[in-house]
Design a protein around this nucleic acid. Structure first.
Lengths: 219, 219
DNA sequence: AATTAAAGTGAGTAATCACTCATTTAGGAG
DNA sequence: CTCCTAAATGAGTGATTACTCACTTTAATT
């Protein structure tokens, strides 16, 4: 039971310069997200999207020149929003101001944060993961966001923690890989592989953070 | 630079009861693996596969009734082979016979093992990960293998380690999720997301194992 | 009410798709 | 060589595809 209305609103807000979307355009986005998530981009037909959106097929191509442009205008705002916490200037504040257990509070904030976001946008998460491999445009967008924002911010925090002797001796890239593997592994298992299990989310989040913290603690 | 010849041999060995493949059939499998991995199943055409295999399109359908049957006959032997270590009766031997650091040696064996296998079969790994989401047949096969073999074997080993007081108090399912997230996160990063980086494989394997071990150690 | 531009329509199109089948080729047994 | 069967072929087929375009509807402004 996903709240597609919320997701579409999310997309709207991010369309550059708050350009208004017509009602039909909203219907198209909603339908496209559902169908792309379920069958994958390549196996989704514009005719099916139009039918589900209660719209003529031509209407889709009024607003999006190609099917791929429709995909991109769905995925890239989501990717940007998903990485938004890293853009926030106060991102690594906890680490610097609260040295004793800075990494833990950082991780907790981040994970709870992104967990809620993934929960509200599970189909979009699915689309990103499924389609990333096939669309160079998406890969470029991801690389940009990751290499220029996420990685440097992460590294800054890690270096600070290392100076304090709080962290294992391990290359930053490896540490970041461990953290992201654990977090993404959780989100993917939770929302894509086994969303129907009876998850105790609070506990699983705690376990995940404990695992990461002990895995990275100075010995 | 992937050794497709080796991969095709792997597939051959696993086709039930070592039924012989004709040379053309080998060419078809090789071409299909390459193209499926690159463009994804849905965007791959049988005509393109036939062309790359230097074979008439009809020849494909002599051997495989449908395009999907071709996919399945490529993927399922790989999945079976990938999980083979868990079938081996001596799998968890280290844990029981060598209690002090049983988990570590188990992990090391397993990871090095699967690392080499993934290295030799990177395109197949790619296909599995990419297509799993869209094909219920593959999901069923995976569930079967995972729930009936991997998970129980894992659990048996974990319970034993818990009795010895070597492990955190955490549900087995969560522990297994952490381990698999870390291992798969590594393999996917190494062979799919960033295969062209200058990887120091031995070191990364050690880091990964250290991370898991400390993350799961009794506090 | 008249005007106008944007939004919406749906029949039409060329390309491509997975798959079929009548026919030909290849290769081993006698 | 003669059979014979399995392997291989490739032109053909109907269905589906993303996308176009001449046209109609809508809605805001004068």
């Amino acid at each position: 039971m996903t709240d597609f209305k919320k997701m579409v609103e999310t997309l709207e807000q991010t369309t550059e310069k708050d350009r208004k979307l017509t009602p039909k355009q909203e219907q198209i986005l909603k339908a496209a997200v559902e169908i792309f998530a379920e069958k994958g981009y390549a196996s989704s037909s514009t005719s099916e999207i139009a039918a589900k959106a209660n719209v003529a097929e031509g209407t889709i191509f009024r607003h999006y020149k190609t099917k791929k442009e429709l995909l991109i205008s769905i995925v890239t705002p989501f990717m940007t929003k998903f990485t938004l916490p890293f853009f926030a200037s106060h991102f690594a504040k906890e680490v610097f101001e609260e040295p004793p257990e800075g990494l833990e509070s950082l991780l907790r904030t981040l994970l709870k944060n992104r967990f809620e976001f993934a929960k509200e946008n599970a189909p979009l998460l699915r689309i990103v993961i499924q389609e990333m491999a096939f669309h160079p445009e998406l890969q470029e967008n991801f690389q940009e966001v990751f290499l220029e924002e996420i990685f440097p911010k992460f590294e800054e925090a890690l270096n600070h923690l290392k100076e304090k002797g709080k962290l294992v001796e391990m290359p930053n890239a490896s540490i970041i890989r461990m953290i992201i593997s654990s977090v993404v592994g959780f989100l993917v298992t939770r929302f894509i592989i086994a969303p129907d299990l009876n998850w105790e989310d609070e506990k699983e989040i705690d376990y995940t953070i404990d695992f990461i913290m002990h895995g990275l603690a100075q010995k």
